[in-house]
């Protein structure tokens, strides 16, 4: 029983990490006023490229680098469509996302069902040996900790730095931001690129650490969950962090319930995260004022500089 509990609580850190990384990236893009619906496809491409590189080179670090860069490369298409050609953000995001999914399947077709070795979990002296909390919190791989550290860094970037302030005001009203002399399109380009890099890293984590094997379609909706997480967290980093962990738990519920010997149809549990997404979005959307104060007001609206 305790072992199962530890397994689930500890495992949720890992299942939460790709969600957290992708959602933080999307948060930054959305804060600048751009909704990027291609996260799922970007994660898939990042996962495919990362797996291929890690498989060939044996280096996880190179895999992560490649995954992130591939995803940024894909996002250049999205940025061009949305920022230069003023195409509709929703349609462009969906289209680029589908392209990403297709590319991942195509490029990694000869790697189907191959496996690699995952990243090892860190052993921290004394801390890892603590009862219960040790194996849960202090026996994770390095990316889990980097993700948490990034959340802290991102939160303080958003609230404490001039760069974060500019990002937020560009997302609130690009016209005013432009009139005050800020570069709206450049800010949005950087935000989209950051979001894409994070989605690529999230995909890389999924295919080389979490389940270190390649199989087409392995992202199975986690990009969409990351998108929902941003709304769930009302565009606040720490709420997104909390949400990611909750969804991480829900993704493990299936395994957990089976190992506890409870008989619930597994399909029901597998669908739990998605049902939870719907419920959470409905509940969160009711608090209009909170949404109003945190949601980027210009979200989804293109900005065309007038000359």
């Amino acid at each position: 029983m305790t072992n199962t509990l530890i397994f689930i609580l500890a495992g949720a850190f890992s299942t939460a990490t790709p969600l957290l990384l992708a959602a933080m990236g999307e948060l930054v893009a959305e804060k600048s006023g751009v909704i990027n619906l291609s996260i799922e496809g970007m994660m898939a491409l990042g996962a495919a490229i990362a797996f291929m590189i890690a498989y060939q080179s044996g280096s996880h670090a190179l895999g992560f680098l490649g995954g992130g860069l591939a995803s940024v490369a894909l996002s250049l298409i999205f940025s061009t469509l949305v920022l230069v050609l003023n195409a509709n953000q929703v349609a462009s995001g969906l289209a680029v996302g589908i392209l990403g999914l297709g590319l991942s399947a195509f490029l990694a077709r000869s790697f189907e069902s191959l496996t690699i070795i995952s990243l090892e979990k860190l052993d921290i002296p004394i801390l890892t040996a603590l009862p219960l909390i040790g194996p849960v919190a202090f026996h994770q791989d390095v990316v889990v900790y980097l993700g948490l550290g990034l959340a802290v860094a991102l939160a303080s970037f958003m609230s404490k730095t001039r760069g974060g302030l500019i990002l937020r005001v560009v997302g609130e009203d690009p016209h005013i931001a432009h009139s005050l002399g800020f570069k709206v399109l450049r800010t949005r380009f950087l935000a989209i690129s950051f979001g894409a890099a994070m989605a690529g890293l999230a995909g890389a984590y999924a295919s080389t650490v979490l389940t270190p094997l390649w199989s087409d379609g392995m992202i199975i909706g986690r990009g969409w969950i990351a998108l929902a997480l941003v709304v769930f967290g009302t565009w606040r980093v720490f709420r997104i962090l909390l949400g990611a962990y909750m969804f991480g738990l829900a993704l493990l519920a299936d395994l957990a319930v089976q190992s506890l010997g409870i008989r619930i149809p597994s399909q029901l549990l597998t669908s739990a995260p998605y049902v939870m997404t719907i419920i959470v979005l409905t509940v969160v959307s009711k608090d209009a004022l909170r949404i109003k104060l945190n949601a980027p007001i210009s979200l989804g609206e293109n900005y065309k500089p007038s000359k």
Binding site: R168, E172, A177, L180, F182
Partner: peptide
């Protein structure tokens, strides 16, 4: 030319 979701001081700090 004011942004609603940030504070008075932050607005002024932009310029």
């Amino acid at each position: 030319s004011l942004f609603e979701t940030v504070t008075v001081a932050e607005n002024i700090s932009l310029t």
